[in-house]
């Protein structure tokens, strides 16, 4: 049992933390690309901007500025700074529900990223700056795992993390494999960048060796059972946390755990061998739509339910 508003805040805290971490990787990969050939940098910048839904063609021509904006722009609703501020604002709302260890981690990152020294730190060493945020976010997740009770509140936090992660990876894959009419991106540099953005390069190499091929990347990021950033892995966690959280709620047929179970099964039993690159787009669209439906169902079931249904008789 926990307050509906609190569950909502924990859920959003999870989403924003995950978003911040993902944006750090996108920004970092973009910056790394600028050190390489200039056309590669433009291509990577175009991929990143497409993945975050920014269609301004001008921005891809100055990847450094784009990466900087993604990190520090407070006006940008999707920037790292904004995501961390919102994660922390949600954490403040539920300060009584999370442990001091967990709070301190997040507060520390927030103070550094929004502090007066942030812009200089980014300019002096953007890669180190982003690397530190990612490392600190891992500490945050570790602190939550190690110090918070693995009860309802923690489940809502992780629901947010995994739903956000599934959607972010899904959107990234869409840029590469979404449109069947376009020739798939086969450029080696772009493909390894995709693996880096998904924090998947090392696990991928261990699984498939340095044979970097688009269909294998798709298989790994979508269907791998054990890799924590594959969509299948995330949907399995979503299903797990939702069925635990739904135990005491009678949500009927539209319950989010049913939607999550269906999505999980869809990925678990997909005919992986026969999915061609051209057919991946339709599946990705379904996955992203169902993630959105789960999000709405969570809200309707646990947070904004109608009072008439729940009043004591």
């Amino acid at each position: 049992m926990m307050l509906a508003r609190v569950a909502d805040s924990l859920y959003w805290m999870g989403r924003y933390v995950e978003r911040a971490e993902h944006m750090c990787r996108l920004s970092d990969v973009m910056l790394n690309a600028t050190l390489d050939r200039s056309d590669a940098a433009t291509q990577v910048a175009r991929i990143v901007l497409a993945a975050v839904g920014d269609n301004d063609p001008e921005k891809a021509n100055s990847p450094y500025d784009a990466a900087r904006a993604l990190a520090l722009d407070r006006e940008d609703g999707g920037s790292i700074t904004t995501s961390l501020s919102r994660a922390r604002e949600n954490a403040r709302q539920v300060r009584d529900q999370i442990t001091s260890e967990t709070w301190e981690r997040l507060n520390l990152i927030y103070l550094r990223v929004t502090g007066p020294g942030a812009a200089k730190a980014f300019n002096d060493g953007s890669s180190a700056f982003l690397h530190d945020i990612i490392a600190d976010l891992h500490l945050f997740k570790g602190a939550a795992d190690a110090t918070m009770s693995h009860g309802e509140g923690w489940r809502f936090l992780l629901l947010g993390v995994h739903l956000e992660r599934a959607q972010l990876i899904g959107r990234l894959l869409e840029v590469f494999f979404g449109d069947a009419r376009k020739r798939p991106i086969t450029d080696h540099f772009a493909l390894t960048s995709l693996l880096r953005m998904s924090c998947a390069l090392e696990p991928y190499l261990r699984r498939y060796t340095a044979d970097v091929r688009p269909e294998l990347i798709l298989e790994f990021l979508m269907f791998d059972e054990d890799f924590p950033r594959s969509i299948r892995f995330s949907t399995a966690r979503i299903e797990e946390h939702l069925s635990a959280a739904s135990r005491y709620v009678d949500a009927g047929h539209a319950g989010p755990e049913r939607l999550a179970g269906r999505l999980k099964a869809r990925l678990q039993y997909a005919d992986v061998e026969n999915i061609e690159l051209g057919g991946a787009g339709a599946l990705l669209t379904t996955v992203l739509d169902e993630c959105e439906a789960i999000h709405t169902a969570i809200y309707d079931t646990f947070v904004a339910y109608s009072l008439e249904m729940r009043l004591p008789a």
Binding site: L3, R5, A7, R95, D96
Partner: peptide
């Protein structure tokens, strides 16, 4: 609230019905 282990509520979390006060939780009132 944290040190007492009591929920920290705002007015919008509360509902009064039949002169009883309830809080909106994830599993109902």
């Amino acid at each position: 609230a944290r040190l007492m282990g009591a929920p920290l509520v705002e007015g919008r979390d509360l509902v009064v019905h039949d002169n009883m006060v309830y809080m909106r939780t994830t599993t109902g009132l």
